[in-house]
Design a protein around this nucleic acid. Sequence first.
DNA 1: TTACAGAATAACAACGTTGTTATCCGATGC
DNA 2: GCATCGGATAACAACGTTGTTATTCTGTAA
Lengths: 325, 325
Amino acid sequence: MGVTIKDVAKAAGVSYSTVSKALRDSPLVKPPTKKRIIAIANELGYQPNVAARSLVSKKSNTIGVVWPTVERAAHAALITKINEELECHSYTTLLSINRVESAINTFNRLQVDAILVFSDKSYLDDHSSNVPILSYGIAKEPIHPTVDVNRRDAILLAVRYLYSIGHKNIAFIGDVSQQDQLQEEKVIGFKQGMLECFNEIPDDALIHTFGLELYDGYLALKTRLEKPNRPTAIICGSYDLTKGSIRAINEMNLSIPNDISIISYDNIPQINTFDQPISIVGVPNEIITNTITKALLDIIEKKDITNSIILTPELNINESCIGIK
Amino acid sequence: MGVTIKDVAKAAGVSYSTVSKALRDSPLVKPPTKKRIIAIANELGYQPNVAARSLVSKKSNTIGVVWPTVERAAHAALITKINEELECHSYTTLLSINRVESAINTFNRLQVDAILVFSDKSYLDDHSSNVPILSYGIAKEPIHPTVDVNRRDAILLAVRYLYSIGHKNIAFIGDVSQQDQLQEEKVIGFKQGMLECFNEIPDDALIHTFGLELYDGYLALKTRLEKPNRPTAIICGSYDLTKGSIRAINEMNLSIPNDISIISYDNIPQINTFDQPISIVGVPNEIITNTITKALLDIIEKKDITNSIILTPELNINESCIGIK
DNA sequence: TTACAGAATAACAACGTTGTTATCCGATGC
DNA sequence: GCATCGGATAACAACGTTGTTATTCTGTAA
């Protein structure tokens, strides 16, 4: 079925080792011959056999990604990008939506070159994995090298900025259920910022949602806006919550930024699909993916990354925020 | 790094071909020897080398799944299940979230045994793929063998049922934008049913949403319920729309089924997470996944399933529907 | 012309596995 | 006691590729 290197060799009238070298662009073969061989290979529709190649090279050029939470939109954006970047380095990404342990097992069987784990948990059980593992999540006492975003500082940055332009009534909308450490970190950052700026955290400054979906944000903010003491600035804990919040604000016939300034967490590309520009705080997706890609290549090369990498968030302000005199 | 079959052979004092046979449970090797070899292999932590194995067997035991629309929850449920089922047949699932053409290319390079494509489009461009392709979507003039759900009949069934228990004012809520052929089919089924039962399609029987998300359903239904001539029964075009509809109904202080009966499309497990049981119409997920798995194994073996498979929906009624005298 | 360097290409082993074929050895039948 | 049979295991080729080593060929200097 498949056309092999030997078929090409026969067609070109050379030995098969020459073909191999020609296709790998080795300097050991004369340019004209090389050109001719490549042309013939293309014509025959030659596809290198991955199995044979990785058998001899002892590498699969494949990276396994463990992604148990398929639902999270932010992760989807990350994975798509990482996938692209790795392809540039001629690695193929392999996704598994199984449970973490089971996925790690499978990837060990498949002998991928490295495993990337997306997990909310702060640590993974210590599995015996022959393959190096990188995790993206919380770098608190990690077992494996980890890439993490400093969510606490992100929200802190936002509070400080809003304070600096005169806001006195700032609210944070997000999941305060303490189930998810990632969300918890944001709340801590908010509280820290409020204490720093105002020496207190008013009861109604934290707007609780019960989930991270659009509707959760919509409902929570709408309920809050119907009460007195309307905040002049809101920090939204995630992309979907921002979407819901904006709908709630529109529905109340309020204006961004004249009535309410908004800063959204999550620095993902979709943020540009809103009707109006929205200020954001977070680590740009591109930086996250670059870092992860680089870290993966590093752990493959055995450049042991002992330290975890913690990324610093950036603030991007535009007309969704206005100062208060 | 890896412990090979030869290491096991040396440790067991037998030839490596004997080890191979013992591990594949061949009758050619004596039971006691077999047992001993397996024990030693386990002890050494032997993992068969996939590359070598697929090099000789000319199979990768891997199936590529093209999944360009990561966001759709219904697809996530399907894929998870298919993944499980294939694992039972010792196939590994490989996900790609790239564009369809690019993904098919990659999978050809990796020489997977078959490709499963999730696509809204009614047909794929005729790519030169050496690997057999199965698609899940619309089986209208398909190029590749296709597994399809008869969405038209599903909604038709629902209309007929509601009519049979006395409803005179039935509405369908769904995406009527005609962008998506899958959604379009449902609308056609609804219209057909209405004509069949009532000889007409009232203008307000179709409740348009502009998307398939929860909030889209919520907003559209709420708007509709504020108008006169409230429907006594509603058919929801998808799981997320059902969720939104239920919220709208609750918010208006209406009761299911006393004020409004509900039937939801999408026969997925999550449907059981609602506060109350909801009647559904559609093909149970398990049947879809079984069919797809079987079809995949078939095209791998025979390389030729000429006919597409169209699945017939089922109606599952419970207390979310009540008759009208 | 012969010898020889250096480039170009051919030959070959190796990667880890599987299926086929060959070998060994004990038991059986005459 | 010898040939034979058959079960158990060993030996080996093959899968398609790459890196190393061996061979051929070309052009140049003695």
